[in-house]
């Protein structure tokens, strides 16, 4: 049994061995994607529902493809965030999906802890596809998978995550996951976008991104959201790009063979320059491919009878 819990709510509460198990399974899944047929029977007769309270074509499509490649049925439910307060409660929605015979519910929600609440009240396996500022475990797993593919091992690597750490569930999941796998994680961004007590999560934190990137094996830029600007967390997009954006000069501080990553979608010229996005060290497209492999691995592991 690779996964101990019926759900995957985050990387915070799972072990190094569980993470390793998922990554190993994903290797096999990647071979299936790369094969001509792209079809396995692993999910035959299983129903996967994507329950998205926030838009994300990427993540949703990735899960859908994962289910389809494994012959599962997938159904999409979109709920607008504005209707959360007045509409059906999350618990009721979960119960309804349960009695309909759903095997896996993939939930994305604007509020941290929503997947935990759903998991507590349903028999279906719940996969967190992003909750508030909390976690986005499948993204972090695909990031780790991508790094391991390129570097062989995460242990001992220096990973610099740069940008809006405060509002990034990708950053949090990567911090939990990568530190468990032995990487040294460094975060950087404007002080207004660094979470309180972030160092207590076992990372180094900088406001000078050059320092953060120094000798890094991996440089990951995070998407900056325009609404943070409106909230006064930084003065302007151009100032952000100038002081906190990843560009060729910054990357020179990193190791020569440093990998460039971004969870997407990219604001070109803001958090990272186009030249880097399209450059030789960029793994941004590989990340997307690996996302499907990781999600196939999870769907497989979470629906097999022996866990």
């Amino acid at each position: 049994m690779i996964l101990k819990s019926k759900d995957l709510l985050g990387l915070k509460d799972i072990t190094k061995e569980e993470i390793q198990g998922i990554l190993d399974t994903a290797k096999t899944m990647k071979l299936i994607i790369q094969s001509g047929t792209k079809k396995t029977p692993h999910l035959q007769g299983k129903t996967v529902i994507t329950l998205f309270y926030e838009n994300s074509t990427r993540t949703r499509t990735s899960f859908e493809l994962a289910a389809k490649y494994m012959s599962g049925n997938s159904v999409n439910i979109s709920v607008s965030t504005s209707s959360v307060a007045k509409g059906e409660t999350l618990i009721d929605t979960g119960r309804t999906l349960d009695v309909m015979g759903t095997d896996v519910i993939i939930i994305r929600h604007s509020m941290a802890g929503a997947p935990d609440l759903l998991a507590k009240h349903t028999n279906a396996a719940v996969i967190n596809a992003g909750d508030g500022l909390n976690e986005h475990p499948t993204q972090a797993l695909l990031d780790m998978f991508t790094v391991m593919e390129a570097k062989g091992d995460l242990n001992g690597l220096k990973v610099a995550i740069v940008g809006d750490i405060l509002h990034s569930r990708v950053a949090r999941s990567n911090i939990w996951g990568m530190t468990k796998m032995g990487a040294k994680v460094v975060v950087a961004g404007p002080p207004t976008l660094l979470p309180s007590h972030i160092k207590d999560l076992g990372v180094e934190a900088y406001t000078d991104i050059e320092k953060a990137v120094e000798d890094a094996d991996v440089v990951m830029a995070l998407r900056i959201q325009k609404e943070r600007l409106e909230k006064g967390l930084f003065p302007s997009v151009s100032e952000y790009a100038r002081f906190f954006g990843i560009n060729e000069n910054i990357v020179k501080k990193a190791k020569k063979d440093a990998l460039i990553m971004h969870p997407g979608p990219v604001n070109r010229g803001v958090e990272i320059t186009s030249a880097l996005v399209d450059g030789d060290s960029s793994l941004i497209d590989t990340q997307v491919t690996n996302g499907v492999a990781i999600r196939m691995a999870l769907l497989y592991l979470m629906t097999r009878k022996d866990g």
Binding site: K12, A112, G113, D131, G132, L133, N134, E135, R169, R172, P195, S196, H197, I198, D200, L201
Partner: peptide, 13 residues
């Protein structure tokens, strides 16, 4: 409360 726990839980502090 904003602090270590809000960062761990990803809740706005």
């Amino acid at each position: 409360n904003e602090g270590y726990m809000s960062t761990v839980l990803g809740l706005p502090g």
